[in-house]
Amino acid sequence: CFKERTRHLLREWYLQDPYPNPSKKRELAQATGLTPTQVGNWFKNRRQRDR
């Protein structure tokens, strides 16, 4: 489970761009302490949920 702060950051970025490029994923991974793969999976799952 991700911390509330991490989820908030991910949601904020998702609203700006639901399809982040690899450099954005790396930047967000550094900001949250997650791996770029975890960030990518979160975005993928969130896009699925929004369908």
Rank of each mutant, 00 (worst) to 15 (best):
R26F: 12
P20S: 04
W13Y: 09
R26K: 13
K44N: 14
A31G: 05
G40C: 09
K25W: 06
Y19F: 11
H8P: 02
T6A: 13
Y19A: 06
R46S: 11
R26I: 08
P36K: 09
R49S: 09
Q16I: 06
W42T: 06
N41D: 13
P36E: 14
D17V: 01
W42P: 00
E12H: 07
F2A: 12
L9S: 03
G33R: 04
R47D: 02
T35S: 12
P20D: 00
S23P: 10
L15D: 08
L9H: 05
A29P: 01
Y14W: 02
R5N: 12
R46W: 07
N41L: 09
A31K: 08
F2R: 08
S23C: 07
A31H: 06
A29L: 01
R11A: 08
R46D: 04
Q30T: 13
N21Y: 04
S23Y: 04
R26E: 14
E4F: 06
R7V: 13
P18T: 01
P22V: 04
E27Q: 03
E12K: 06
P18F: 00
E4Y: 13
T6W: 11
T32D: 04
R5E: 14
L28Y: 12
K44M: 10
Q16Y: 12
R51Q: 13
P22T: 12
R11G: 12
P20L: 08
T37A: 13
P22N: 06
R51T: 06
W13V: 11
H8L: 15
Q48S: 12
A29E: 02
L34G: 03
R47N: 05
E12W: 08
Q30V: 13
L15G: 12
L28A: 03
R47A: 05
T37F: 09
Y19P: 05
R7H: 10
R46L: 05
W42I: 00
A31R: 11
V39S: 01
D17N: 09
G40S: 15
D17I: 00
L34Q: 04
W42L: 03
W42H: 03
E27G: 03
R49T: 10
T37P: 05
Q16T: 10
E27C: 07
W13T: 11
Y19I: 08
R49F: 10
N41S: 09
K24M: 11
L10I: 01
E4D: 13
T6S: 11
R26P: 02
R46M: 09
A29D: 06
Q48R: 15
A29V: 03
W13E: 12
R51K: 11
L28I: 14
K24F: 00
Y14V: 02
Q38G: 04
N21L: 11
R49Q: 15
E12S: 08
K3Q: 08
E4L: 10
E12T: 09
N41C: 11
T6V: 15
R49D: 12
T6R: 09
T6L: 12
K44D: 06
L28C: 03
S23E: 15
Q48L: 06
V39I: 12
P36V: 11
R26L: 14
Q48K: 15
A29I: 04
Q30C: 09
W42E: 04
E27N: 04
L28Q: 01
E27W: 10
A31Y: 08
T6G: 10
R7I: 14
E4R: 08
G33L: 04
T6M: 13
E4P: 04
L15N: 15
L9V: 09
W13P: 00
Q48V: 09
W13M: 12
E4Q: 09
W13A: 13
T35N: 06
H8G: 12
F43N: 01
F2I: 15
P36N: 06
Q30L: 10
K25Q: 15
W13H: 13
K25E: 13
C1R: 05
W42A: 00
K44W: 05
N21V: 10
N21W: 02
P18A: 08
Q38Y: 03
R11D: 05
R7S: 12
G33K: 04
F43T: 01
L34F: 04
Y14M: 02
R11T: 14
Q48E: 14
L10H: 02
G33T: 04
F43Y: 00
N45M: 08
S23L: 09
P36T: 12
K24Q: 14
D50G: 05
K3Y: 05
